[in-house]
Design a protein around this nucleic acid. Structure first.
Lengths: 211, 211, 211, 211
DNA sequence: CATGAATGAGACTTCATTCAT
DNA sequence: GATGAATGAAGTCTCATTCAT
């Protein structure tokens, strides 16, 4: 999906190898500048200059600052939702699965905290970016929802919970916790403890037996 | 607290009655314009015009768009954290207290969803507004933290939870849930069910006995 | 009509006396710059500078180069179609009336040849200006048409002529003659002779008896 | 004459057959784009793309947008002034000759009204195109002038007319009539009637005996 | 207090044109 | 011959903010 969705929003793809390289350089430069200056203060000419190009060249590859940013944001969201490199151990307990998912999310979010902060920012006034952000939320919520349903059927989870609401709320918890902690510097936590506590809250919230 | 913090940031207070009225009119107009256009697209001249003033007059009362907005944001956050009008029933169960707090927050957030959305937006690039937003988060987290500690001491709550982390995470859950639902239109939920589910998750998460 | 039509297309009128003066200064400056540089090469900042203003000020009064130009063009067309200062002699022969109209048109066109040239230019790619130009053509054509009809009824003019076509064609003749001669420098003519010849052609064309 | 003038302004002629074809394709594409977008809005890359070329290739054949346009304009003017395909009947009356010339001009103008409109436009700010346009005017005026002189000598035409002025004015009449009618949509006329009326006016204007 | 005229920083964007491949 | 990447001049326009009246 990312590939397709992405393609449809991209500017005309470069037609030569050199062009492809330049374009990639621009995207990299854009990330750097956005991380440093935020979206609003980022100037197209800075991006171009950082990529070693004249500002006019930027417009060969992108129509606007918004457009590069959207591409960047989508790529970044894909990073968050990518499958784990190490194949998921087969027979892992629900608790363990939840812990790993939380850890992975927080690790990845932390590794890109800077740009994630900018994405959170832009998602509040750019429809496309908001959607990209919502996709990610939805990605995790959907997975969690399926898990909750299954566990409810197995009688391992509180049957009074609405799977969609619970899934969305718990996803929201982790997402906002990550932003407050890793972007906004609301407080300092030990990484492992944060993973541990969020996982414990999550499992408790579901009433997960034996957690 | 709001009063003090507010005072220190306000522009010279108007001296005459007429001035005070005009100032209030400007704040009201600002809210209207911000709700309609968002922070970035709002223009000072629109605010002034909406208040029935020339744009030059705006500067008698405020130094900048940021400043009015900050004042507005602080006022709005105060609304969220204000004590309940109906004095809290004395002997209310923890669960009931949690439910009421959640309901109150969501009700108030929903009533001002429009401007809350703008506040969420601005809080991502204006330090002052971010802090105001964080204050609110902290207000609820502190209260929750005290509650958790007390209940842990009473043995009614999971002792493995870190009170500050749990409090902050659960507050984050409700806050982000509210934004996704009421501002970003992520999904539609029945209001009472939402309150119910969030409360249930919250209590479960704490391992609140008998919830 | 000019007043109304004009008003509807103008930018917000200035609200103070000073503003009105400044606006007038801008229009005058615009005319000067357009005459010197043509429409395409005229720069807004030149106009503003010529009026002794910063370029930003231009935008208080006009939305664009097009807009000032339209106003200018309409004013100029009004000059062409204005009634004669000296009340038309009562009992003037048709021939004499035609001669006077032609002379007046050519005198006025010549006095403003420079800007008329720019109007001819712009009328080829700005709808509004084209219409203003067409209004003038129509103004004269309508008057001529009425004259032709009357004279046909009196048997003084060729009955085989279609009044609207003849009126429009003869008006076109004078208009284009003026542009070729006075703007484009197609050839040099003695002014009185030009008036005389055009009048003669016009009257002959109508088959005006005793001309 | 057109051939020579044209040659002197053309870019280096293509040397290979393929090149000649490509060049022709570009000219055709240019006409299409100019007709669609007007001169100012036409972009070289659109012209190249329409011709199935990269925009860089345009510069193998032409130096600028102006240059292609000039070539196009000259070609188009040649079409207007080309001799009639059907050899002129020998012994045709003056009236008949005038009628045929008018009809031919209007037919040809109408067939290419779109591009003629653009030529009228460009002739107001490109010296070369203005000259090309003037050539055409002159072509017809010269011919008319000779005719008038001859007829004056034969006593068939008003002796008070100045041949050059009359010729130029009548040519202007037809030319501007054509533009107003066929390009600017000033009014709708029946084609035959238009020819008839213009011819009648023309002949009357000259005082052509027996017309 | 109120007005609205004036300022000018600050970016954006377009595209004709060049040139290495 | 053809391609398309790269350049950069040139102007446009917006608005927050100041200030004389």
């Amino acid at each position: 999906m990312p590939e397709l969705a992405t393609a449809s929003l991209e500017a005309a793809a470069p037609r030569s190898k050199k062009g492809a390289k330049t374009r990639a350089r621009l995207v990299r430069a854009a990330k750097e500048v956005f991380e440093r200056d935020g979206f609003l203060n980022a100037r197209i000419s800075d991006i171009a200059a950082t990529a070693g190009l004249s500002h006019g060249s930027f417009y060969h590859y992108f129509e606007s600052k918004e457009q590069v940013f959207r591409e960047l944001a989508r790529a970044q969201e894909s990073v968050l939702t990518a499958s784990p490199e190490d194949g998921e151990g087969r027979s892992v307990s629900p608790l363990e699965r939840i812990r790993r998912a939380n850890r992975r999310y927080l690790e990845r979010y932390r590794a890109e905290a800077r740009i994630m902060g900018v994405i959170e920012q832009v998602s509040r006034y750019d429809e496309h970016v908001r959607e990209a952000r919502a996709e990610t939320q939805k990605h995790f919520a959907d997975r969690a929802e399926r898990g909750i349903r299954r566990l409810q059927e197995e009688g391992l989870v509180d049957r009074n919970l609405s799977p969609p609401i619970a899934a969305m709320a718990l996803g929201a918890m982790v997402a906002r916790f990550a932003e407050l902690w890793l972007v906004q510097g609301y407080a300092e936590y030990d990484f492992d403890e944060a993973v541990d506590q969020l996982t414990r809250l999550w499992c408790n919230a579901l009433g997960l037996e034996g957690a």
